[in-house]
Structures are given as structure tokens and as C-alpha cells.
């Protein structure tokens, strides 16, 4: 298992390098000009100096190399300095945003907590809802509960978050006035009242995200339970007189959870991607919204770094899912 993990880690390095190259080349080959916003009255030589100041003077491969060094060598040093108070990164150039001229990673670190609170809560809520639904609808296959579950998850698949988000705003915020329609990220939880406020503003984004995740996860849980419910060991367990609860919850569930756990791990990065839209709907200023504003402002270093962070998340969680699958299921041996 350890050798497998190490091998996967080593394979992940060229994958990530290739992905970073793809992202870099996409931005590089694009015909848009980062100087397009500068007024035409600015003389050509000043314009040229501005280009050089943004780091655009050098050829492509050197800039790609510099970006790699900054991202994989300088940024970790900054992190180490931050944790241990050392000074490895002093005087080294970090990835700078063109919008704010401040290091990209600092902005990203400021934005991540908002995304994590909303997305993380939604994911946990969705898992807590989806698993019981999946278990029960598999146990009572083709009952009205199962049919309803199928329909609801179909709807969850089909209603895009930018519509379900807007719809819950119309219903709960405009008509009923229960929850605020805009997520206030400056709110600090200090006492009970602010905690209630925080809960209120989180309800709608979490609901929208959780609907989507629940739809997928409950279908998967159901299919996995159905695979196991007809197995011989279930009949054995019933034959030796175990109660239904023990049979389903202890024997079947534990075996059915193996693929579901890996699917949960695989779904985490796609949730960050999907949160882009939800963050836009509820005006949560997380990393998804940061990406949108960076794209609109033509802030290429920011866009590049954020896209690459999404890619790292995908590769990382693919790896985690693979390893988890091997750890949980002793029948699977990667050799």
C-alpha cells in the first residue's frame, strides 16, 4: 500500500506540471492584451515599460519557469516562514496580482475561509441527508419513498444552482423575509445573536449546494446498497437470526460504504468548482468569486494561480480516493 501511494504521488508530479503548462499556454496563446485597458494617450514607450513591469518582457518558457519557481519554491517558503517565524523567503519575488500588486496567495488565503465554511457545511449536511435516504430507498426498493427519492434526485441533478439559488432567494428572502439574500462576510461570530445571524445567512447557500450533492450521493448510496443486499452473506446473517437492524446497518452498510466513501472524496474538488456559481448568486466573497473578478479584470497571475489550485485539488483528491479504496477494501491490492 505504501509503495502504491508513493508511486501515485510520483505520477502526480508530471500530471500537475502538464496541467500547469496547459493553463499557462491557454493564457499565453489567448489573443487578448493585458494592456488593452490602458488609455491610448499613454505613449508607446511608457506602455512598453508597463509591460516589462508586469513581467511580460521575457520569452514564454522563461516566464513559465519563473512562475513554477515562484509557485513551488518561494510560496512554500513563505508558508514555512509564516508558521515557524524563519526568514527563508526574504527578498524573493512572489506571484503578484496585477490588480492589487500584492501577493496572490495572500489574497487567496483571505478568501478561502468563506468558501470553506459554506462549501464544507454544505458537504457535511448533504452527506448527513443523502446516506439515510440512500439506505432506506435501497432497503425498500420501488416503494413510494424510493420513487420520491428518485424524482427528487433527478430534480436535484437538473435544476442548475443559478436557478435554484435565485428561486430560494425569491421564496425565502423576498416573499417570506426569513433569510438575508446577501452573505455578509464581515460578520464576526462573537455572541449568540451574531451566531444566529451567521446561521441565517448560511441556510440558503448551503441548501442550494446540498441539494445538488445529495442528489448524486443518495443515488450512489442506493445503488451500492442494492448491490450488497442480495449477496449470500446477507442471507447467512439473516439465517443465523440477526435482527434486520444489525443486518442492514452493520453488515450491508459497512460493505456498501466502500465505494461511497471514495465518491465522497472524488466529489470535493468538483464542489469547489460548482461553488463558483453559488458564490456569485449569494455574493459570498470566496475563491470562486475571486476567480470571476480576476477574469473580468484580466488579472492573469491570479487566474493562473486559482485555476491551478483547483487542479491541485482534483489531482489530490483523486489520489486520496484511490488510496482510500485500497485501505477500505482488502480485496483490492495494487501491485
Amino acid at each position: 500500500m505504501l509503495t502504491f501511494t508513493i508511486r501515485r504521488l510520483i505520477v502526480a508530479v508530471p500530471t500537475l506540471l502538464f496541467i500547469s503548462l496547459v493553463i499557462f499556454m491557454l493564457l499565453e496563446l489567448a489573443p487578448s492584451d493585458p494592456m488593452a485597458q490602458v488609455p491610448l494617450t499613454v505613449p508607446a514607450e511608457v506602455r512598453e515599460k508597463m509591460r516589462i513591469a508586469l513581467g511580460l518582457g521575457e520569452p514564454t518558457h522563461i516566464r513559465f519557469w519563473k512562475w513554477l519557481v515562484q509557485f513551488f519554491w518561494v510560496e512554500p517558503q513563505v508558508l514555512i516562514d509564516h508558521i515557524f517565524g524563519t526568514s527563508f523567503s526574504d527578498g524573493k519575488l512572489r506571484v503578484l496580482s496585477w490588480q492589487t500588486r500584492s501577493p496572490v496567495m495572500d489574497v487567496v488565503v483571505q478568501r478561502i475561509p468563506q468558501t470553506l465554511t459554506v462549501v464544507g457545511t454544505a458537504y457535511v449536511v448533504a452527506i448527513l441527508i443523502a446516506l439515510p435516504i440512500g439506505i432506506y430507498s435501497a432497503y425498500r426498493q420501488y416503494s413510494w419513498f424510493d420513487q420520491l427519492g428518485t424524482f427528487v434526485s433527478m430534480v436535484g441533478f437538473s435544476v442548475p444552482p443559478f436557478f435554484s439559488g435565485v428561486l430560494v432567494i425569491v421564496i425565502f428572502s423576498v416573499q417570506l423575509g426569513w433569510f438575508p439574500s446577501i452573505y455578509d462576510t464581515t460578520l464576526k461570530v462573537t455572541d449568540w445573536d451574531s451566531f444566529v445571524k451567521q446561521l441565517q445567512q448560511m441556510v440558503m447557500p448551503v441548501m442550494v449546494l446540498a441539494l445538488q450533492i445529495t442528489a448524486q450521493l443518495s443515488r450512489f448510496m442506493r445503488a451500492s446498497m442494492l448491490d450488497n443486499l442480495n449477496q449470500d452473506y446477507v442471507r447467512t446473517a439473516r439465517a443465523k437470526g440477526l435482527g434486520e437492524y444489525v443486518v442492514v446497518m452493520a453488515h450491508v452498510l459497512r460493505n456498501s460504504m466502500i465505494p461511497v466513501v471514495t465518491v465522497i472524496a472524488l466529489g470535493i474538488p468538483s464542489i469547489f468548482g460548482g461553488a463558483i456559481i453559488t458564490e456569485q448568486v449569494f455574493k459570498v466573497n470566496g475563491i470562486g468569486q475571486l476567480l470571476i473578478t480576476a477574469i473580468e479584470a484580466n488579472d492573469l497571475p491570479m487566474v493562473q494561480t486559482l485555476t491551478f489550485i483547483f487542479a491541485v485539488l482534483i489531482v489530490l483528491f483523486n489520489l486520496i480516493a484511490d488510496v482510500l479504496y485500497g485501505v477500505l477494501d482488502p480485496r483490492i491490492r495494487y501491485d
Partner: peptide, 9 residues
């Protein structure tokens, strides 16, 4: 493994 939605945007 590519982050598709951000790249499409």
C-alpha cells in the same frame, strides 16, 4: 484532471 469550469470561463 483539468478544472473545467474555470478554464471554460
Amino acid at each position: 484532471a483539468l478544472p473545467l469550469l474555470p478554464m471554460i470561463l
